[in-house]
Design a protein around this nucleic acid. Sequence first.
DNA 1: CAACTTACTAACCTTTTAGTAACGATCGTA
DNA 2: TACGATCGTTACTAAAAGGTTAGTAAGTTG
Lengths: 132, 132
Amino acid sequence: MSRKSGQNIWIGSTCPIRQVLDRFGDKWSILIVELLSHEGKLRFSEIAHTIGDISQKMLTVTLRSLESDGLVIRQFFPEIPPRVEYELSELGKSLVPHIQQLSAWGQTHMDTILENRKRFEEKQQKQGKTAY
Amino acid sequence: MSRKSGQNIWIGSTCPIRQVLDRFGDKWSILIVELLSHEGKLRFSEIAHTIGDISQKMLTVTLRSLESDGLVIRQFFPEIPPRVEYELSELGKSLVPHIQQLSAWGQTHMDTILENRKRFEEKQQKQGKTAY
DNA sequence: CAACTTACTAACCTTTTAGTAACGATCGTA
DNA sequence: TACGATCGTTACTAAAAGGTTAGTAAGTTG
């Protein structure tokens, strides 16, 4: 139970939460996993259009890193013009339910959070700066 | 089911996954929630020591934002020297099981991911650059 | 009186992340 | 000849995230 005696290996830099965050804490990875989980196979340009505001570069980079980690399977068809299809691997699919739970939590609670934040800001403004 | 017809509101910039990521995608928020869920009430310096490699500034900033959103409750004791205790709110606690699921997924699969990544890098080096 | 304490703020700087714009390869079409 | 389609790459730039250092309050300890 790690009673307050210095550092804690479950919180230190190798703990699993941090590993997951390092991997998926970027702007696009989880979004692409979610999208592929809904749509199955998609082409590069289909992903780009569906997301709408991702740059070509970031889509390339993110897909490549997901492929590199075995979360996404990339199939290249050497036609002219070239065609590439992306889909989730089994590993990628195994992550989906957890993402959806987080998403559901967000749908339930995000309004409250944003209200809290607004109220906090107002309170701060009224008070100016109080000691601590 | 959003059949490939332009953009998708569940993936666009207001979808719940992105909101959750915007809130918790930073380096420390989830870690602190996890820690408080284990330890209950903690003082500023206890959190700092347990995590080990967080700067004072980032701890202040992250705790303040968690407080602002109503995820963490901050209790200030006007003693000399000052004492402050932090604990999860009910809202904060409601997030914990989801984090733990993600963490468990990480523990199960992160080794595979890192292996995949290593193999991918090696493959890339051997091939040099092939067309696509 | 100097040093130390806790929690925090402010100024500054470095690192990381993401975006933009331009270009390439290749063939079919106008 | 030039353009468009597809899936990229590269170099450059802007913005954000996060780290470092110094300083504050007000009392306690040596």
